[in-house]
């Protein structure tokens, strides 16, 4: 009885541990090529699959500016990988944004792909303000995502998207003249 009480006390007196996640390892079919599914977060923060012609939401992080949470779900690779994402201007072929690069542990299988658990493991593409004065809002763009897993497998996904704002402040700051908003 005393031992059980002590164990229970010890359990409840410790701070919660990290969210459990499986160790790195291959997921999918090793005989097939790396497969990537472009994804992005909506205004509700939930990650969804992207298709050519979709809009991607410019969102305000805590300290200002606007970013796009976009990356990939993937299969047929090690679920621990590095993901790099940016927007490319369709007209010029030049980058429209900076890149964001981060580690991801893909955990949840959904529609045949393994997804990052949250936006912390999904690239936060720095989009606005644009000091180069090109502006990203409402431009036709390609979301380009490159992945390299911990075993060295690589892959690239591209999808045509349009970055959009949900308010006038965003439209100005994400336009070509953000210094006068």
């Amino acid at each position: 009885m005393l031992l059980r009480t002590a164990v229970l006390l010890a359990l409840f007196s410790c701070p919660p541990g990290p969210a459990p996640h499986p160790p790195c390892g291959f997921v999918g079919d090793a005989t097939r090529a790396v497969a990537l599914l472009p994804i992005a977060a909506g205004a509700d923060g939930l990650l969804r699959a992207l298709h050519d012609g979709d809009e991607v939401q410019l969102q305000k992080p805590p300290q200002g500016g606007f970013v796009i949470y976009a990356g990939v779900a993937a299969t047929n690779l090690n679920r621990c990988l590095q993901s790099t994402a940016e927007l490319i201007d369709v007209a010029s072929g030049q980058p429209l944004t900076g890149i964001d690069q981060r580690n991801a542990d893909l955990v949840d299988e959904h529609v045949g792909y393994f997804w990052p658990p949250d936006i912390f493991q999904t690239p936060n593409i720095p989009a606005c303000p644009d000091a180069l004065h090109v502006g990203v809002v409402n431009r036709s763009a390609i979301l380009r995502v490159d992945v390299t897993d911990t075993d060295g497998r690589t892959g690239r996904a591209e999808v045509h998207v349009t970055p959009v704002c949900s308010d006038a402040s965003c439209t100005c700051i994400c336009g070509p003249n953000p210094t006068h908003c």
Partner: peptide, 15 residues
């Protein structure tokens, strides 16, 4: 998070 080992975050800032 606890147990993270050499987790990296990187960006470019174009100016």
């Amino acid at each position: 998070c606890p147990g993270d080992d050499n987790v990296a975050f990187a960006q470019t800032c174009r100016f």
